[in-house]
Write a protein that binds this DNA or RNA. Structure first.
Lengths: 353, 353
DNA sequence: GTGAAAGCGCTAACAG
DNA sequence: CTGTTAGCGCTTTCAC
């Protein structure tokens, strides 16, 4: 601020009331006479007064700011997450302090900064970030919600999709499609999300007696994924079905398959992703993918956050939101309906009409 | 914060020094004896002390927070902007309060919120947002930097690419490629960015006697762009060269051209975009595009912001960062070198050898 | 319903 | 170099 802003004191003077009256006018539950309130508002408008949120924070011990940590945004999913999250928080009167772009740098100084701003809560949406961060938060009494990842740590909340089930459903679907040689392209090796998707995929295949699959490290990175795909397709016995742990990677694999190896998708190789980002539905890709239920996930995250803030306590709830397989053209279709091991229907051929 | 945080007072008591000594320890330029500093740091570590940025703001009248307004993030460019911006600000000790996701809602309440948090500056990266917002800021003495858009308003800074020149270069390139029937797909009609790109394009074509071109309203929206593209290609005399005001729209046009009209790119129609987002370089698209010089633009924006904050004054500098044509496969190549009207080389065939 | 007064956690003079 | 002191702008008792 270049010039000192208008204070409640000045407004009070102009309105001919006490400074407390001004404060009360801007405090939702406070008792102010309608007449007083009007005088205050008139004076405030005239002077261009705005309550100072910082000063309020100092005394209420609530900043109404949520720290959001997203190491990098190139997962095509995150812009969407950010938008929905911002909307949800704003609706409840909260602001968003964003920490991102520290791919290379260390995250510790970042964390220090966050804490100095006395955020009311922290949302961690980086699959790769060390969980020390969340420990330090709970130690400081700041509620944490992990988004699209989880942890074994006892005291923190998380919201994820049903990664394990999703991976398994994809395995069932691909197996039913007649494939026999599978590959998995892994995301960040240390992330629970990647671990669960892979574990589900392997479990689904094992049910059909397949325990050996190809493996590539995509690392959520375009270049790494391309390298992994090249190795895969150049092998003597290349896979005829590839499941990539994220759409981002799946699309990179598809590009390599088509443009560097001249493979037809899905005739020569089926490719399936996870997340169902916008581009998955573009005609050029028509990527079969497992839909990450973004809206309900964000809702759940905001809810968990509010619950903790309002109760002034750090909870430990883990919410899993179910997604569903979005079948498109990048994977061969099975001849008939596909069921999960518990009997639920994963996919069925469209009825003829 | 659930529990009241540790204060400088408590640290001082434990360290056996005055509270000021604690403050000084955390103030970069302050004079503290090494021994005192150490005692303080030891006590702080023991208690888990962190300075309260809010309290500091109250007295320094500097929040070290920059408000960033981005109405929506689906322009594939913005995640990148956000990352780079966050990194640049962080480097200088600033945090980022992000306002986004209010596509449908009104932006006024959002603005009120921003101002209550006493942001040191505001970065506007929404091409579509009304400029009243920036007026109100300057009125309040808060420096504004517009990113990737500009305005006629006297008191505010802006950083853009050379949109007009970019549009013109694309016109030259396409004309030299032998095209004769052109179309422009417009972004947000009210944005300076769109206006300039279109004006440059038209100017470039007019130089060659072409003043009539097709026009579609893509509105930076996938669905709108598709509709516009359908109308274009379904016409009796469809264009053989399409320039879309953003890559996002260019890709949408390409999808429609190929998959709904069976057109070959660039044999049947050349398509050129603007921004050079990551996907432009994917083999599936190989989109010729004008590179938005993102890194220098973000640097300039941060610089302009800091300059204003440090001088405690609202400046009015408009920075234009030059980009360059990234020639790929989505537009027919000219037979020989292409020059802009001032003689600068836009493109030349690769040398044989 | 209202004003006076205390104080949130910190920085910035000011003497020493 | 250090401690003392006076606020920053606000919310929140507490009497009235």
């Amino acid at each position: 601020m270049t010039q000192r802003a208008v204070t409640a004191e000045e407004v009070a003077r102009l309105a001919g009331v006490s400074q407390s009256a001004v404060s009360r006018t801007y405090t939702p539950g406070a008792s102010v006479a309608a007449k007083t309130r009007e005088k205050v508002l008139a004076a405030a408008r005239q002077l261009g007064y705005r309550p100072n949120a910082m000063a309020r924070t100092l005394i209420t011990n609530r900043s109404r700011i949520i720290g959001v940590v997203m190491a990098y945004l190139d997962n095509m999913l995150y812009p969407d997450v950010l938008e929905k999250l911002a909307a949800g928080l704003q609706e409840r009167g909260y602001q968003m302090l964003l920490f991102t772009g520290f791919k290379d740098r260390h995250s510790d100084p970042v964390f220090e900064q966050i804490m100095q701003y006395r955020v009311d809560g922290l949302l961690l949406a980086s699959t790769t970030l060390s969980s020390d961060l969340s420990d330090e938060c709970t130690a400081a009494g700041v509620p944490v919600v992990m988004f699209n990842r989880t942890t074994e740590h006892p005291l923190c909340c998380s919201v994820t999709s049903d990664n394990h089930s999703g991976g398994r459903q994809i395995a069932e679907f691909l197996f039913a499609g007649g494939h026999r040689r599978f590959a998995y392209i892994a995301g960040a090796a240390i992330s629970s999300t990647n671990r669960d998707r892979e574990a589900g995929f392997r479990q689904g295949l094992r049910r059909h007696g397949i325990s050996e699959i190809d493996y590539g490290e995509g690392n959520l990175d375009t270049a790494d994924t391309r390298t992994a795909a090249r190795t895969l397709f150049a092998s003597e016995d290349p896979p005829d079905a590839v499941f990539a742990g994220s759409d981002h990677m799946a699309l990179a694999v598809m590009e390599i398959a088509r443009h560097e190896f001249g493979l037809r998708v899905p005739d020569d190789v089926s490719i399936v992703g996870y997340d169902d980002v916008g581009a998955a539905d573009w005609p050029s890709f028509s990527l079969t993918s497992y839909t990450l239920p973004l809206a309900p996930m964000v809702d759940a995250a905001v809810e968990l956050m509010m619950e903790q803030i309002e109760s002034s306590s750090v909870l430990s709830h883990h919410r899993v939101v179910p997604g569903r397989l979005a079948v498109r053209g990048s994977a061969r279709l099975p001849g008939g309906p596909v069921h999960d091991r518990d009997g639920t229907l994963i996919w069925a051929p469209a009825r003829k009409g």
